[in-house]
């Protein structure tokens, strides 16, 4: 599908997520590259769709009985239909970086240079370490604490236990790297928009939906 077609079918917070992911996301802006060019190869690892479905499961409460009317496959398919998540090489590359646990402590150079470009040190800002190196180190430490009790053989997000996956996602949400927080925000927007635009989800939360039958003549 063409770039334009994605943006045509996007929406609000989800539109900004797509715009960013499709401009490179964790790899920085690759807008100059011709369409279809793969500036960075997709990393070997889990297939993108497996990672995405795992992320859908981590972000939504399928372990809650009340949510049983919806399935991870239905949400993923809604996200694919609305936003073309499964057809985009940029999103696939981003998901691969997210999935690779070893890259959390030592992120690829493209990610750190994108961090420096978009979230440069701000004089007087005490909200996070000033240098990108210090931010990476702080993240690595948080990861070490979190993963201390995990099975050491795990190398991918997709293969973690559900609660471990959620903790890993929140590590991204509260990362000292702005670009990781942005990835979290982007994926959350796509998944929440895909889920909560479905009439089936409205029934679960007591939202009656449009009132158009009151339209005046």
């Amino acid at each position: 599908m063409e770039r334009r077609a994605f943006l045509e079918s996007s929406s609000l917070a989800a539109a900004s997520a797509l715009h960013w992911l499709r401009g490179g996301g964790l790899f920085g802006q690759v807008a100059q590259a011709p369409p279809g060019a793969q500036a960075t190869p997709i990393l070997p690892g889990e297939p993108p769709n497996t990672i995405f479905v795992a992320l859908v499961k981590a972000m939504l409460p399928f372990d809650d009985q009340r949510f049983a009317a919806l399935t991870p496959a239905a949400i993923a398919s809604s996200a694919n239909a609305l936003f073309g998540v499964d057809k985009d090489a940029d999103i696939a590359r981003n998901l691969a970086v997210f999935d690779s646990l070893s890259l959390f402590a030592s992120p690829p150079a493209a990610l750190t240079s994108a961090e420096l470009a978009v979230y440069p040190p701000v004089p007087g800002d005490k909200s996070q370490p000033a240098t990108v190196e210090a931010r990476v180190a702080a993240d690595a430490k948080s990861y070490q604490t979190l993963s201390a009790h995990w099975n050491a053989a795990q190398t991918s997000f997709a293969s973690l236990q559900l609660q471990e996956q959620r903790a890993y996602v929140m590590l991204w949400a509260r990362s000292d790297l702005g670009i990781r927080r942005r990835f979290y925000r982007a994926m959350k927007s796509l998944i929440m928009a895909a889920a909560y635009s479905m009439d089936e989800a409205w029934a679960l939360i007591g939202y009656a939906g449009p009132l158009l039958h009151f339209r005046s003549s």
């Binding site: 917070a13 972000m59 809650d64 949510f67 996602v169 949400a173 928009a193 989800a201 939202y207």
Partner: peptide
Amino acid sequence: PVGAACALPDIGSEHF
């Protein structure tokens, strides 16, 4: 709902 779900904090059961 879409706007609310994107804005509200947390994920998983805490979000729900």
